[in-house]
Design a protein around this nucleic acid. Structure first.
Length: 156
DNA sequence: GCCAACGTTGGC
DNA sequence: GCCAACGTTGGC
């Protein structure tokens, strides 16, 4: 089993969208970056995934979801109505993949970006590398353990 | 809203 | 294959 981190804007699909219907299977689609796609392909059933909220008021890791279906062709790439439509992708050679996720738990309080940046042992996280834009990335066992055992973020 | 950093595109 | 232009990401 492996660990991952995915970014999302909570206004699109945040941890509360998972928590609201804990049994619901939510497709993780719309990834349109090759490196991120390759990480999606590497996910296996049962992998745990940090859900990171970006571009919002409370930036940070807001919860954990779990992979329940491994990579399959992302249907949105073939849907002309979808904002993720990719006219260059062909059904016999799909470019993009999706996985399915379910809710596992929220992290309260959320692990803020500031905490992540200022905690030892996390400097290898792609999330905090300079200018990083990767929306799906691996998290090592050690990094996962650190993030799961963090004390409450320090008062500023 | 700003803007730095980045990935992709397309002309050559 | 190069690389400038462009659109997007994402923190601030």
């Amino acid at each position: 089993m492996a660990y991952w981190l995915v970014k999302t804007e909570p206004s699109e699909c945040g941890i509360d969208d998972f928590a609201r219907e804990p049994e619901r299977v939510i497709p993780w689609d719309g990834v349109r970056n090759y490196q991120a796609r390759n990480f999606l392909r590497a996910m296996t059933r049962g992998d745990r995934v940090f859900l990171y909220h970006s571009s919002c008021q409370h930036i940070g890791i807001a919860g954990i979801v779990r992979v329940v279906r491994e990579a399959y062709p992302d249907p949105t790439q073939f849907d002309p109505e979808s904002p993720y439509h990719d006219p260059k992708s062909r059904p016999d050679a799909p470019r993009w993949q999706a996985v399915d996720m379910v809710f596992e738990r929220k992290l309260q309080p959320l692990v803020t970006l500031d905490t992540i940046k200022n905690t030892g042992g996390l400097s290898g996280l792609a999330l905090i590398k300079r200018g990083n834009r990767l929306s799906v990335m691996p998290v090592s066992d050690a990094e996962w353990q650190i993030l799961m055992t963090l004390p409450a973020p320090p008062k500023m």
